[in-house]
Amino acid sequence: MSDEMQKSEADEEQVAEAQAGDTTSEEPYLNPLEAAELRIAELERDAAEMKEQLLRTIADMENLRRRTEKEVKDAKQFSVTSFARDMLAVADNLRRGLETIPDEERANAEGTLRALLDGTAMTEREMLKTLEKHGVKKLNPEGEKFDPNYHQAMFEVPNPEVPNNSVVQVVQAGYVIGTRVLRPAMVGVAKGGPKFVAKPDEQEAPSADPSDIEGIDKSV
């Protein structure tokens, strides 16, 4: 091979290597200022994403804290539910024991009978006070609007002079613990009177027709 051919091949190899090493046509040249601005923008995006993740984590933790507090509160409040429900029979018996004595005899009672009546009444009051201390409250809704959430209609009383759908008689007192009903109050409901108007200081209860309540006894 002649020297001229070898030289030509060598020149071609040098040109090819130069073209292979030249990347300016593929990647634009960035001066230091532009490169710094791009890096800053990238860091700002990363910081914004991290901030958003942090805020979501804080919100999740706050929701978890509130749920935990509510669960703990409910557990404390409703832990005595079964016991309180069992004690309602005792409260009923104390009340029945007092009501077996006619009003006139109770008013004129003396000696042993007076002591027995006073002791029974005191026991009932202390029991209700203790139950209330643990979140159990007695419902005695006479004169209030019938509320199917807390009352059970046992019979209707036709009376055009009494507001319609109001409780005119409490057959058996009800009890609640917190917002839960331990036992609905068994009541008689007025029918045929004017529309019930709640007092300004009373919260309007959901209206319901007692005839729609399952198990109502209209024979009384």
Rank of each mutant, 00 (worst) to 15 (best):
A109G: 07
P102A: 07
A198Q: 13
E144V: 04
A75N: 05
L98D: 09
L43H: 07
K133Q: 01
G192H: 09
T81S: 09
N93P: 05
G215H: 08
R39L: 01
D92L: 10
D103P: 10
A109D: 07
T112F: 00
D217Q: 11
A20Q: 14
M1H: 07
Y29T: 15
D201S: 09
A198S: 11
G135Q: 03
E44C: 12
R114S: 11
R114T: 02
R95V: 04
T123F: 12
F78C: 03
N63I: 06
Q19W: 04
R95H: 06
I213H: 06
P141W: 02
N108Q: 09
A48E: 12
A208K: 11
Q203V: 14
R180G: 15
R66S: 02
E49Q: 09
T68H: 09
N93Q: 14
L131R: 03
R67V: 04
K145T: 04
V80G: 05
G215W: 08
V90D: 10
E156W: 05
A121T: 11
N31P: 11
T68Q: 14
A47G: 09
L128K: 09
N159F: 01
M122V: 01
L116I: 09
V72Y: 10
E202D: 11
V187Y: 13
L43R: 02
K218L: 07
E161L: 09
K218M: 03
E71R: 07
G111K: 02
A115W: 12
A35M: 04
E62R: 03
E52N: 01
E105R: 10
T68I: 09
M50W: 15
G174N: 05
R45P: 07
D3L: 06
A59I: 12
L113V: 07
P158N: 06
L33V: 06
R183V: 11
P163Y: 08
M5W: 10
G215I: 07
G119S: 13
L116S: 03
E110S: 15
V136L: 02
S25T: 05
D147S: 06
D212L: 12
E156S: 13
V72P: 04
M186P: 08
E17Q: 03
T68P: 01
A89L: 13
G21W: 06
E204C: 05
M122E: 13
H134N: 10
G97N: 01
E42A: 12
F155Y: 03
E42G: 10
L131C: 05
E104S: 10
S79A: 14
Q6P: 10
Q6T: 14
V187M: 08
G178L: 13
K133E: 15
P206W: 14
P184L: 00
P32I: 06
G111F: 08
E12W: 03
V157R: 11
P194I: 11
Q53E: 01
A109L: 00
Q172G: 00
E156C: 13
L139K: 01
F155M: 06
A10F: 00
N93V: 05
E204K: 12
R114F: 12
M154W: 01
A10C: 04
L131S: 02
E49I: 14
K129N: 12
M50F: 15
I177C: 05
V187S: 15
K70A: 05
K129I: 11
K191C: 14
A109N: 08
K51C: 05
A41C: 02
K7L: 01
I40V: 15
K70C: 01
L54D: 00
P141K: 04
K73P: 04
E99A: 15
E126K: 13
A91R: 05
L113F: 02
R67I: 02
K145V: 04
